[in-house]
Design a protein around this nucleic acid. Structure first.
Lengths: 202, 202
DNA sequence: CGAGCGTTTGAGGTTGCTCAACCCGAGTGG
DNA sequence: CCACTCGGGTTGAGCAACCTCAAACGCTCG
């Protein structure tokens, strides 16, 4: 896999760091010097509108990358959702060490970011229940586990990401549980009726 | 500018084609062999959900590129919004002709696609009026004209892209006109009170 | 055991959707 | 030259979905 190769070649160029909960990892507007790989825990990216509203644009789980920007500065702020370990690669180092395949690897990372952002847009074009179901299915896929999903983030974060309110997310969870499609315990969700869920988010 | 360079070097590898209105340019699921640059007119990308609903993910104006995919196949369908001229580059040809900077150029295109998709997500996280205003401001910026905006697409396409209904888009246009922020004539919109508009979409 | 955050639940209000009618301009054919 | 049609756009009334505000509950961690 390309990511394995990428990491193998470049681990020595990066630095692993531990963050506790809700720490800033990089800040919107800063010179975008780093590329990040999540080793454990969960990171989110968010942007702040000038009136103070905050929007979460993405969550990052172990194994996933962040860091390719159109501009020279970060367009979002990166924050730890939970205590987490994150490996940072400096772009300069990458480019200095560049063999002729490295840009291609970066291209693949950018393309997967793009695909992620498009999925998010599609999610936001739907109704509340569908958004919640789509979110659960996406998390299940990324955790590679269709039985149970861990939700490292709060309901508030989920709601913000989905363009809903905490209350609505909670109610949708409730309704899904009532219909026996899922079972909820704290921040672990069991996908009891996967076909039904996939039917809701087709 | 990077795009000039890109095109200059590679024009001979591409083929320009004319499309009439509402033609398919490439289809979701097809092997993604091409990269497209809009020369005139307007293109849109859309995806069809399994229940038949269609969602427009992006519009492309003259000078803009489409074509970098995470996977080997197109994840969306490309269609002409108006009669338009589009230049297609074959990826294979690009890679064969690759000097050591070409992957970097592709990376920049991918990054701008990403930024576009993120803007779309942010748009969808807002209320109806804000979405419409945000859309107008985005089009103005991309057309490099803060006085007047051309809207090559129908209200239906705008609504679909914004996750609203035609009626709502029409009403929001009406309300903006009533408040003297814009003036509408067919598919040309004059931005009468730009500060007010920017205030609405801050 | 208390404090505080995160979550759930309920009642009422607002936004944007649905359904329906109507308008307008561009083609088309008599 | 007018009548008809058709796609696109606007407008209005009623309704459903989702939000707001408010209260209560339950972990978790001092």
């Amino acid at each position: 896999m390309m990511q394995e190769l990428f990491e193998k070649n470049l681990t020595h160029l990066g630095t692993p760091t531990w963050y506790s909960r809700n720490e800033e990892i990089f800040v919107e507007g800063e010179l975008a010097t780093g590329i990040f790989k999540i080793k454990s825990g969960c990171m989110r990216t968010a942007t702040v509108l000038s009136d103070g509203r905050r929007h979460i644009l993405s969550f990052y789980l172990p194994g996933e990358f962040y860091g390719l920007e159109a501009g020279r500065v970060y367009s979002v702020t990166g924050e730890s959702v939970t205590r987490c370990k994150i490996h940072m690669f400096r772009k300069n180092a990458l480019f200095e060490a560049a063999d002729d395949k490295i840009a291609m690897r970066l291209l693949m990372i950018a393309a997967s970011e793009l695909s992620r952002a498009q999925k998010h847009s599609l999610l936001l074009l739907r109704g509340a229940k569908e958004r919640v179901v789509g979110f659960l299915l996406d998390m299940a896929e990324r955790q590679n586990n269709w039985q149970q999903v861990d939700l490292p983030m709060t309901r508030g974060d989920i709601a913000n990401y989905l363009g809903l309110t905490t209350e609505t997310v909670s109610r949708m969870f409730g309704r899904l549980e009532d219909s026996a499609a899922i079972a909820i315990e704290r921040r672990r969700v069991t996908l009891c009726d996967l076909p039904a869920l996939k039917e809701m988010y087709k």
